[in-house]
């Protein structure tokens, strides 16, 4: 078949080539999540004996909420994630603006330092931080996350720096003529136009805390820890036997809000990354 023909009309074979792999890949990606939902709706006695639930057990979801004090841990997670995301985004935007728009000796080197801290293995940094927080009596509190938030995130600083660097300089000049200081320019001109970068970085910052298991497991205690730590333990019956079905319902409740949110917000994320231009 000639090229010209092929372009005019797609044959069934070409449709197959175009859609086959992507459909197969999508099924492969979705199957584990699908199985999570299937399992979460089975009766516990059906686990391991029946492939699919005979009657959908929505009660598993109620049990998942009741048995684990789910609301309590979800609130902890929500509070901690939101607080960190708000602080980190605001500070990172400010710092990114500084790097993008104000020059001073040592700026290039300092920016390399931002990138460098991004590359230090997590645990290398965390172990001494852990000792530090311990000595300051800040373990078992949310202070570590507040402090992390207040110092910004290297990733988000990078993102905002790239994003703001693409803004036309004339914006600043006009504002400066009006007598606006750098902070006002940042708040009134840069931030309102940074929607995609704010959305993308806020989502990532939020997700980092919502999903993190290690730090809350080591820094917090049972009563103030996050949902991630609680969800790491299976739901058990009174004999200590695992309830896989209820556990999966709990896990589903833990991730479904994120999934719903992302299905809605993913174009922002893509746009945020595209407009930022990872290539620098």
């Amino acid at each position: 078949m000639s090229l010209a023909l092929a372009r005019r009309r797609t044959s069934p074979a070409q449709t197959g080539v175009r859609y086959g792999p992507v459909v197969v890949a999508a099924i492969a990606f979705a199957l584990p999540i699908f199985w999570l939902l299937v399992t979460s709706l089975k009766k516990q006695s059906e686990y391991g004996s029946a492939l699919f639930p005979s009657v959908l057990q929505w009660a598993n979801y109620e049990l998942a909420v009741e048995l684990a004090d789910f609301g309590h841990f979800a609130t902890n997670s929500l509070v901690l994630s939101t607080a960190y995301a708000l602080l980190a985004v605001l500070v990172s935007a400010l710092v990114g603006y500084g790097f993008a728009r104000h020059s001073a000796p040592g700026r290039g080197k300092l920016f390399m330092l931002v990138i460098a801290t991004w590359m230090v293995p997590n645990l290398v940094l965390f172990v001494p931080q852990f000792v530090l927080f311990a000595r300051l009596g800040l373990t078992n509190t949310y202070w570590p996350w507040i402090l992390w938030g207040l110092s910004g995130s290297p990733f988000a600083i990078f993102l905002f720096r790239q994003f703001f660097a693409s803004f036309p300089r004339e914006l600043d000049d006009a504002a400066e003529v009006d007598g606006a200081g750098p902070l006002r320019i940042f708040l009134q001109i840069y931030m309102p136009n940074a929607g995609p970068a704010i959305a993308a970085s806020a989502i990532f910052m939020f997700l980092w805390v919502w999903g993190d298991w290690l730090y809350p497991a080591l820094l917090l205690r049972q009563d103030n820890t996050t949902l991630a730590v609680r969800m790491a333990n299976a739901y058990l019956d009174p004999h200590g036997n695992p309830l896989q079905t209820v556990t999966m319902a709990g896990v589903a409740l833990y991730v479904l809000p994120l999934i719903a949110f992302f299905a809605f917000a993913q174009r922002f994320i893509v746009r945020g990354i595209v407009t930022t231009g990872i290539k620098g």
Binding site: F29, L207, W210, G211, W213, M231, V255, L258, I259, F262
Partner: peptide, 14 residues
């Protein structure tokens, strides 16, 4: 795109 992206936002514990 959403399907491929989803696992990336699923927390490690889940």
């Amino acid at each position: 795109r959403t399907i491929f992206y989803l696992p990336y936002v699923i927390p490690v514990v889940a």
